[in-house]
Computed example of a mutant assay.
Amino acid sequence: MKRINAVLKLEEQGVVAVIRADSKEQGLKIVNAVKKGGIKMLEITMTVPGAIDIIKELAEYYKEEDVIIGAGTVLDAETARACILAGAQYIVSPYFNEEVVKLCNRYRILVMPGAMTVKEAIKGLEAGAEIIKVFPGSAFGPKIIKAFKGPIPQGNFMPTGGVNLKNVREWISAGAIAVGTGGDLTKGAGTGDYALVTETARKFVKAVREAKERK
């Protein structure tokens, strides 16, 4: 049931906050600011110090709330399992790793492997991935979603990398089920301006909602 809920929430929300930070303390502050701005899909990347501890803490803290905690930059099945045991409800990888997808399917956890070609995308779908992460999205821009949708209209695609407030509507209009955004969303954290992070999150939520309503 968690897997279905995660897919539905992702489609409904339309935006995933990709959390990268220099420390656990900063990571938690970013999470709080993003959540305050209305983004409820939170992806804690494995590049954050103490990432698995953060996932465990957040999964417990938000267990009664409408918030979905996931893990990003997951490179192998061992890390994926540790994240799942800590409470992650979805796993995101920058590339297709068959063992990661198998493990997530075994535990009925949403998994989003990365792809940059049609061949990679089809491999992910054949392995059982519900959603394919298009990464890095900045390499081709929104037009790659339309290109993928040509031969794979049944695929669900989420771009990450290069998604910002200027082009987020274009990504959704091109057919993306959702977008993942990190640096453009959380840049305020670099100067300690978490109010800016919250405001930026609100703008992303609004832009995605408006783009989905126009589809």
Score class of each variant (00 low, 15 high):
58 L>H: 00
161 G>W: 09
131 I>K: 12
116 M>R: 02
44 I>G: 06
119 K>V: 13
107 Y>E: 15
156 N>I: 01
1 M>F: 11
125 L>E: 02
166 K>P: 04
214 R>Q: 12
83 C>Q: 09
101 V>Y: 11
165 L>S: 04
8 L>E: 15
77 A>P: 05
70 G>F: 01
112 M>T: 00
180 G>L: 08
51 A>N: 04
159 P>K: 11
46 M>T: 14
100 V>K: 08
204 F>E: 00
39 I>D: 08
95 Y>M: 13
25 E>S: 10
110 L>Q: 05
202 R>W: 00
210 E>W: 08
153 P>F: 05
91 I>M: 09
110 L>M: 15
25 E>D: 14
167 N>Y: 07
189 A>P: 01
129 A>L: 05
157 F>N: 00
69 I>Q: 04
89 Q>D: 09
4 I>Y: 10
4 I>V: 13
193 D>Q: 03
47 T>D: 15
175 G>Y: 03
105 N>R: 14
26 Q>C: 02
142 P>R: 12
94 P>D: 07
92 V>C: 06
49 P>L: 05
88 A>Q: 11
177 I>D: 01
71 A>C: 15
36 K>Y: 03
213 E>W: 01
114 G>A: 09
118 V>M: 05
15 V>L: 07
75 L>V: 11
173 S>W: 06
174 A>F: 03
184 D>Q: 10
85 L>H: 08
120 E>R: 11
54 I>P: 04
124 G>R: 08
71 A>Q: 04
13 Q>D: 11
95 Y>E: 09
129 A>K: 05
91 I>K: 09
173 S>D: 10
145 I>G: 05
213 E>Y: 01
98 E>L: 12
116 M>K: 05
44 I>A: 09
157 F>D: 03
45 T>P: 06
163 V>Q: 07
180 G>N: 11
133 K>S: 00
188 G>R: 13
75 L>E: 02
196 L>G: 00
66 D>T: 03
27 G>C: 15
116 M>E: 02
93 S>Y: 06
152 I>R: 01
71 A>N: 08
177 I>F: 00
75 L>Y: 06
49 P>W: 12
163 V>H: 06
66 D>P: 06
130 E>Y: 15
134 V>Q: 08
188 G>E: 10
65 E>V: 12
151 P>Q: 05
163 V>C: 04
102 K>V: 01
187 K>T: 09
18 V>C: 09
49 P>C: 03
76 D>G: 13
149 K>Q: 15
155 G>S: 14
56 K>N: 14
8 L>S: 15
28 L>I: 15
21 A>R: 13
110 L>E: 03
20 R>H: 09
